[in-house]
Amino acid sequence: MIKIKPGKCDFCGCCVAVCPVDCIELKEADISIDYNICIDCKLCLYICPIEVFEDVETAEV
């Protein structure tokens, strides 16, 4: 599953724009994923210019 690395995000909205299910919430300086909606498609991981996301084994979370 996709995890957000703390402290890295610049809050640009690039991931929100490609997310097919609108599961990323982005406020002024706050980002979170709603895991009830996330389908683990990884597009956010693939598009992020600065590698904010990482793909981790479910057991690690």
Binding site: G13, C14, V16, A17, V18, C19, P20, D22, L26, L43, Y46, I47
Partner: peptide, 19 residues
């Protein structure tokens, strides 16, 4: 509301950008 336009999505418009 910019590239991430959620306003459009909330109204049922498909604003998702293809990869």
């Amino acid at each position: 509301d910019g590239v991430e336009s959620r306003v459009g999505r909330w109204a049922g418009l498909n604003t998702v950008v293809k990869m």
